[in-house]
Design a binder for these strands. Structure first.
Lengths: 125, 125
DNA sequence: GTAAGCGCTTTCCTTTAGGTAAGTAATAAC
DNA sequence: GTTATTACTTACCTAAAGGAAAGCGCTTAC
């Protein structure tokens, strides 16, 4: 027996289109930290150590690498101020602000998801 | 010289809150494939091989692993139909549909981002 | 002189993700 | 009996992510 579900594949291009978009977006935003770092800097410009304190759990090595990556992709800017000693302040670019809706939706969803997990833990106990 | 930026740390809880939300969301949605697979199945229920054909580049091993993971987290349901031979059809759950806005925003952004990359490639050549 | 802070870098290591290729049990078609 | 299909699993491997801890060049504070 053979079940044919999509003989003519309705709206397949549209489907493949958004699939590709999502894959492309995830390609630059991959990893555990990128979106969190962008959010952190969109809220206010910060120094290296301030970022590390705020984003709990990230190591200096990984932070340095991710900041370089984000700068290369035009999400943040590294400003060096000629104070003594120099102060280095990272700020979010205009382009990173185009991610605001993405981050907003992700934050809303993350909160709801945490609630859901808590409830399912209660049921099990 | 010392630069004091946030003496009293304004709205820091709110900031840390959404940061945590984003981190929590990324924790379940990590990896290259999860959101793409959810999108694929939200559009219509499919069989294993159909998914593998649609999501270009995923291997059967990784697909099997990701599907198990998504089922455990209640994003998809594995339906076994007693045809001969059995047909196994994966469908998106109601819960996975709560990700619709996230995926929508990500798709929109991904498309814009691809355009931006194209343009910056043109400038360089 | 000693200690501490800043913004990292370096080294070493473990974990995870992910890919390739082959295999398998069950069934059906030829 | 041979081949094909479905839905995987298994074994093996590489590359990348990520963590811990130490160090470093510079400067200021004590």
């Amino acid at each position: 027996m053979k079940i044919v579900i999509n003989e003519v594949l309705p709206s397949n291009e549209e489907c493949a289109g958004s699939l590709k978009n999502v894959l492309d977006a995830l390609y630059v935003l991959n990893g555990k930290w990128k979106l969190a770092l962008i959010l952190c800097l969109v809220q206010s410009s910060k120094r290296f150590n301030e970022i590390q304190n705020e984003v709990a759990g990230i190591s200096s090595k990984v932070l340095a690498k991710e900041l370089k990556d984000l700068e290369l992709n035009d999400f943040i800017k590294r400003n060096v101020y000629p104070t003594t000693p120099v102060s280095i302040i990272y700020e979010a670019t205009e382009y990173s602000r185009t991610l605001k809706s993405v981050i907003g939706e992700l934050s809303t969803w993350g909160e709801q998801h945490r609630e859901k997990i808590k409830q399912s833990m209660r049921k099990q106990s």
